[in-house]
């Protein structure tokens, strides 16, 4: 009789426990979009001679006053600063090289973004205006050239196209920065719970297998 009572109580507890878990899952699913923490990401893009970065926690909360450290790929420190209220930090490209941008948001949070050589090259910083011989394109402009294309060297055209592209692409880069996934998806959550149930199932299997083997010997 006592056994039966324990059984009933066990069932009651399990129903309750499952209920609590269900509530937790529901809340977490509801909270997924504006919620969650403990992962921090930084996104960076090149615009002309400037690099813009944007940092946020998983869940979309912007990182205020997070430390941003920029190094080259060998680890030499180039520049560092802090994010503002909107999680943004921009800096002039200090050196035309690939860069690793590291975000340290305190309490063990860290994110990273790498800007490649190509991106920096595309920004035109590899050929800054000041380095060009000043007389190089003056004569062609002065002469009444019938075809403007011949007056511009391939470098100039590349520079102009790059600048125009940067200008056109900037809103898109912002959009990408905004729409980075900001938290785990529902399939991640359900999947994780599924794994845990699977492990419990595996333990059950091993247990009963052992039991039946004990019985047969």
């Amino acid at each position: 009789m006592n056994h039966q009572r324990v059984d009933v109580m066990m069932r009651y507890t399990w129903t309750a426990a499952t209920g609590v878990l269900a509530v937790l899952i529901t809340i977490s699913v509801i909270c997924v979009s504006p919620a969650a923490a403990h992962r921090v990401t930084i996104f960076a893009w090149v615009d002309g001679d400037t690099v813009h970065t944007e940092s946020k926690f998983s869940g979309g909360k912007k990182v205020h006053n997070g430390q941003v450290v920029v190094t080259d790929l060998e680890g030499a420190r180039l520049i560092e600063g802090r994010t503002d209220e909107n999680g943004a930090y921009s800096f002039k490209i200090p050196k035309p090289t690939a860069m690793r941008i590291e975000l340290i948001a305190g309490m063990g949070h860290r994110g990273e973004w790498v800007i490649t050589d190509e991106e920096v090259g595309a920004s035109g910083i590899t050929a800054p205006e000041g380095d060009r011989p000043p007389g190089a394109d003056v004569p062609s402009r002065g002469s009444d050239s019938p075809s403007p294309a011949s007056a511009l060297g391939p470098d100039d055209i590349e520079r102009i196209v790059d600048a125009a592209l940067d200008r056109k692409l900037e809103p898109m880069m912002r959009l990408i920065a905004e729409s980075r996934p900001s938290g785990p998806s529902i399939s991640d959550i359900i999947g994780g719970i599924g794994y845990i149930l699977g492990i419990v199932g595996l333990a059950t299997y091993v247990h009963y297998r052992k039991q039946s083997r004990d019985r047969s010997t």
Binding site: L24, I27, S28, P34, A36, A37, I189, I193, I196
Partner: peptide, 14 residues
């Protein structure tokens, strides 16, 4: 298992 699952989803509740 149930507690592990609870812990797993709890960190999503912000």
């Amino acid at each position: 298992g149930v507690l592990s699952a609870s812990f797993f989803v709890a960190s999503l509740i912000h």
